[in-house]
C-alpha cells in the first residue's frame, strides 16, 4: 500500500489478511461480488437490508388471507422462504398464527432442515 502505512500489529494483520482481496477497482474482466444478484442466493452476509423476493412489508390483517380473501396478495415468502419471515421478520403475524389458529402448523416438521416440505400453506 502506498497511501496507508500500517502502524500497529493489528494494522499489519489487516494488511496481510486483505492481500488477496483486491477491492474497489476490480481488474478488467474480473467482477467483484458487489453487483451480484443476492436475492435468494445467499453467499455470505447480505450486503444491504435483506428483504426476500416477494416480501410485501405490508401487514395484511388476517394473515392467512389477503384483503380479497385469497392468498395471492400475501407476501410470497410464506410459500418458499419460511425462515426469513418466521424468525427474521419484524412482523411475525405475516406467517400463520400458530398460537390461536394453526397450533399444529409445524407438527409434522420435527427438524426444519429435513422436514420443511411438510410445512404447508394454510388456506382461509
Amino acid at each position: 500500500m502506498n497511501h496507508l502505512k500500517a502502524i500497529n500489529k493489528k494494522a499489519a494483520r489487516v494488511e496481510r489478511a486483505t492481500l488477496r482481496e483486491p477491492q474497489g477497482r476490480p481488474e478488467p474482466g474480473r467482477g467483484t461480488t458487489e453487483h451480484d444478484v443476492v436475492a435468494l442466493q445467499r453467499t455470505g452476509l447480505p450486503q444491504a437490508p435483506h428483504f426476500p423476493v416477494g416480501c410485501s412489508l405490508v401487514f395484511s390483517p388476517g394473515w392467512e388471507a389477503d384483503r380479497t380473501g385469497g392468498t395471492a396478495g400475501l407476501c410470497q415468502p410464506v410459500e418458499r422462504d419460511l425462515f426469513d419471515c418466521h424468525i427474521g421478520c419484524y412482523w411475525p403475524a405475516q406467517v400463520p398464527d400458530q398460537l390461536n389458529h394453526a397450533p399444529d402448523w409445524t407438527a409434522k416438521c420435527a427438524a426444519a432442515q429435513k422436514d420443511w416440505r411438510k410445512i404447508d400453506l394454510i388456506f382461509p
Binding site: M1, N2, H3, L4, V14, E15, G24, R25, Q47
Partner: peptide
Amino acid sequence: DAAIAELTRVQAIGKAAA
C-alpha cells in the same frame, strides 16, 4: 483511485449502499 482502493481495503471507507 489508489487512495480510495486502499481505504476500502482496510474498511476505512465503503459504499454507502452497502
